[in-house]
């Protein structure tokens, strides 16, 4: 204490406010990560999780209720519903990933150019984004997929295009926020040019919330692609995309597990992804 006056430098070194939010994320987040891990493994190595075939079944045991042998029951051809869900994961997950990537890349470029360049670039791109926003997202996806043809990959592209506007708008807002930051102006005074400001300061400070949105959008894309598959706009059977499983299950009123098992898988997956996104947003 006696040194305070004589050495003022020590004083501001001493009061280092360190915020150590050490430790693990909350339990629900850990659980969510576990769910996502399982889903990823399902899509990468489905054979590890089930030895049954998703395409051929034993018609003798058709429409069987869930049991130890068939966790999710069997469908009208006696195919194991659990095997169909596991084998349908790859297509559902990769298509959601493709959709997010399309939205993220195109949207970010538009938002970045629009927010950083301003002026006529912003005006032109802004109108384009307005147009994408003006057409209801799901309708836009339906129109695009009907033009491209009914395939899961096209549903993914359609979903991605309809997400471009959301990404562009967020990226633009973030870039505009960062662009006016004092440290960006400071970098000009340190001899930096616009490209340096963009890549060195604006992008690193703007991309975080866009990434959080990307995680959230992954969940949303699973839902939209499942909805498109439900309407029959994805790959036709015997493909077993999650949405398609729900759609084909709903005809068998006596076997509700055919609907609820894949539906539950969708809900739990999306819920987990949303939880992770919310955690990332708050931990930022």
């Amino acid at each position: 204490m006696t040194a305070i006056l004589s050495n003022t430098q020590l004083r501001d070194l001493g009061s280092t406010p360190r915020k150590l939010t050490a430790g693990l994320p909350p339990a629900t987040v850990l659980l969510s990560f576990a769910v996502v891990l399982v889903v990823i493994l399902w899509s990468l190595v489905p054979g590890l999780f089930t030895s049954l075939s998703p395409v051929t079944g034993d018609t003798a045991s058709k429409l069987a209720a869930p049991s130890a042998a068939h966790w999710f029951g069997t469908d009208y051809l006696g195919r194991d519903q659990y095997a169909r869900v596991v084998h349908g994961t790859a297509s559902s997950v990769t298509s959601a990933l493709v959709a997010v990537l399309i939205g993220l890349v195109i949207g970010s470029i538009i938002g970045l150019a629009s927010g950083f360049r301003g002026g006529w670039v912003d005006a032109v791109l802004g109108r384009f984004v307005d147009v994408l926003l003006a057409i209801p997202g799901f309708l836009l996806a339906v129109v695009i997929v009907s033009s491209l043809g009914f395939q899961t990959i096209n549903a993914a592209i359609a979903t991605g295009v309809s997400a471009v506007a959301v990404f562009a708008r967020l990226m633009r807002a973030e870039v505009m926020r960062v662009r006016g930051a004092t440290y960006v102006e400071a970098s000009y005074l340190q001899g930096g040019n616009r490209l340096h400001a963009l890549l060195g300061h604006v992008l690193p400070n703007a991309y975080r919330s866009v990434l959080v949105l990307a995680v959230l959008q992954f969940g949303t894309s699973i839902l939209i692609i499942a909805s498109l598959a439900f309407l029959g706009y994805g790959d036709p059977p015997p493909a077993s995309d999650w949405g398609l499983l729900v759609a084909s299950g709903k005809t068998y009123v006596t076997a509700p597990w055919l609907v609820y098992a894949p539906a539950l898988v969708i809900v739990i997956t999306v819920l987990s992804v949303n939880r992770i996104s919310r955690w990332l947003r708050n931990a930022k």
């Binding site: 969940g219 839902l223 909805s227 439900f230 729900v246 759609a247 009123v253 609907v259 809900v267």
Partner: peptide
């Protein structure tokens, strides 16, 4: 809200029909 955002609308519809109609 987070839960509402995670349930596909066709699942909600099917559940409501199952319980309230059937």
């Amino acid at each position: 809200p987070s839960f509402f955002l995670s349930v596909p609308n066709f699942v909600i519809g099917l559940i409501l029909i199952e319980f309230f109609a059937f």
